[in-house]
Computed example of a mutant assay.
Amino acid sequence: MRYEQVADNVFLIRGTDVNMFVLRDGRDLTLIDAGWHGDAATIEKSIRALGHRPEDITAILLTHAHLDHVGALNHLHREYAIPVYTSETEAAHARGEHHESATPLDVIKRLTDRSTLGWATRITAAGGLRKNPVPHIQPFPTEGPLDLPGHPIPIPTPGHTSGHTAYHLPTAGAIATGDTLVTAHPTSKLTGPQPLPNFFNHSTPATIDSYTALEPVPADLVLPGHGPVWTNGIAAAVARARESAAHQRT
């Protein structure tokens, strides 16, 4: 299966080399991120395998507006009228008003690496070259905890993109870190908590600075945008990621 339970009422959905997370409260769900365009069917099948319908998704929260996270947003909005929220800065990015992302040329330069080549092939098949603006996205309706399943608390973590947001999930003792802090990626030789390689980040120094906002969050479980779930706490993950940053591939 492409999903697994990682905490009480928290589920991981595996897209094409990218993670998405479902928060459950009774019959209502919150989805964090939406994979690539080609991951729409995986999301729907996983939701149904959990005993739910896509219509049970109350809202989708976006960490940031890269193609591997916005992929199924338009499909889910068109088919089920599901609203999507992110920070005000990132909403403009998602609508296509500015661009902060690795380019195809950035990837092509690195295709001599076998794992990167395999990843590039997979993501191209999943819609990696497809423009995918999200015109209906909205800024968060309130500050602080959101009135959604899982009671997620947005935490601004600019750097990977200017409006990147992590989400503290207090009822699960977890934090969804998006791409500010990941635990693996096919383009990285490192394992364990780390920032993504520099060419993915709008600003790697700002990404590292954002770890200051993550470090004190009371969360034993780290839910990254890429790589396996980390169970040794966010403070330990941040410490490891800072160490990894010194050895990061450019």
Rank of each mutant, 00 (worst) to 15 (best):
R2P: 15
Q5C: 00
R14L: 00
M20D: 05
L23G: 08
D25K: 14
R27M: 07
L29M: 11
G35Q: 02
W36I: 02
D39H: 00
A40E: 13
E44M: 10
E44P: 07
E44L: 13
T58E: 13
L62S: 10
L67G: 08
V70K: 11
A72F: 06
L73N: 07
L73G: 09
R78K: 15
A81N: 12
A81G: 03
E88I: 02
E88S: 13
A92N: 08
H98Q: 06
S101M: 11
V107A: 12
V107S: 08
I108V: 15
K109C: 00
R110D: 01
L117Q: 04
L117F: 10
G118L: 14
W119H: 08
A120G: 09
R122D: 11
I123T: 10
T124E: 09
A125F: 10
G127W: 03
R130F: 06
V134Q: 09
I137P: 05
T142R: 15
E143R: 15
P149A: 01
H151A: 14
I153C: 05
P154T: 02
P156N: 01
Y167W: 03
H168K: 02
H168Q: 11
G173Q: 14
I175A: 08
A184P: 05
T187F: 03
L190D: 06
P193Q: 10
F199S: 06
N201A: 15
T207K: 12
Y211A: 03
L214G: 08
P218D: 12
L221Y: 09
P228Q: 04
A239Y: 03
A239K: 14
R240F: 11
A241S: 08
E243K: 14
S244V: 10
H247I: 10
